[in-house]
């Protein structure tokens, strides 16, 4: 556990000591600030963060892979993976530690957006329950995106490739589960809709509902991707 946290901590600091970290951070805050100002901050509009949460879902499709792309590819490219893997740490500790570091950076990136509800508070009385649920949803989505990003980064030593594959995967996934079912009959559309992140997020979190099945949905996705990443890292040694 200590080793996992040590790796997570190093990852987090690495984001704040490289340009990429700040660029991603600035880009996200700029875009989400614009979203907030353009969609929420109008007179006569309901005091809700709903539009912000809905659009953040898409924004993160592109932002999260930029956070995760360097995690393992960078180690492979620099060769630091060799000194890391000859320390008494397991492959799982390395993968989980790196993912945790990315999640921590993601949380740090979200933190400044907590100002938005405060702005709303200034003008009206927002519903904090749904705001809380909305943030919980963003954290779940971010953690899931980053888990896949970690997997992509463990497969390709090129960061660009790791980024593109992760973005492409999510676009495909969203297309298959949120758009395709509209054209299919039951039972396929029902099954695919159950797998849709957008449905889970839009119908649960953004409305202020936190459903256990949704939590399990995200958790199992994260576990699946991280386990695959551990297997990939392990398999590297046998080639």
């Amino acid at each position: 556990m200590k080793q996992t946290l040590a790796i997570a901590r190093r990852e987090l600091f690495a984001y704040f000591s490289t340009a990429v970290g700040y660029v991603v951070l600035a880009l996200f805050l700029l875009m989400s600030g614009l979203l907030f100002a353009l969609t929420v901050l109008h007179t006569g509009v309901e005091a809700t963060m709903r539009p912000f949460f809905d659009l953040s879902f898409f924004l993160l499709l592109f932002i999260a892979p930029a956070i995760s792309m360097r995690l393992i590819s960078e180690e492979m490219r620099l060769g630091t993976i060799e000194s890391l893997m000859t320390c008494p740490v397991s492959d799982a500790q390395v993968v989980i530690g790196k993912w945790l570091g990315a999640v921590a950076f993601f949380l740090a990136m979200l933190a400044p957006t907590l100002l938005y509800p405060l702005v709303l508070e200034w003008y009206s009385s927002p519903d904090y329950g749904s705001i809380f649920a909305g943030y919980a949803g963003l954290v779940c989505i971010g953690a899931l995106y980053l888990a896949l990003g970690t997997l992509a980064s463990s497969i390709w030593p090129s960061q660009v490739l790791a980024y593109l594959v992760a973005v492409f995967f999510w676009l495909l996934f969203v297309g298959l589960t949120s758009w395709l079912p509209r054209y299919l009959g039951d039972p396929w559309s029902a099954i695919l809709f159950r797998m849709s992140i957008e449905q889970r997020y839009g119908n649960d979190f953004a409305k202020g509902v936190i459903d256990t099945s949704t939590i399990i949905y995200f958790l199992s996705g994260i576990v699946l991707f991280l386990t695959a990443a551990v297997k990939i890292v392990e398999s590297r040694r046998w080639r």
Partner: peptide
């Protein structure tokens, strides 16, 4: 090739390694 994390300070890196070794 003596791979190291370029963005870390010497002392940070050594502490990081120390943590990895528990």
């Amino acid at each position: 090739s003596n791979p190291l994390y370029g963005e870390m300070r010497v002392i940070e890196y050594l502490h990081f390694r120390g943590r990895l070794f528990g």
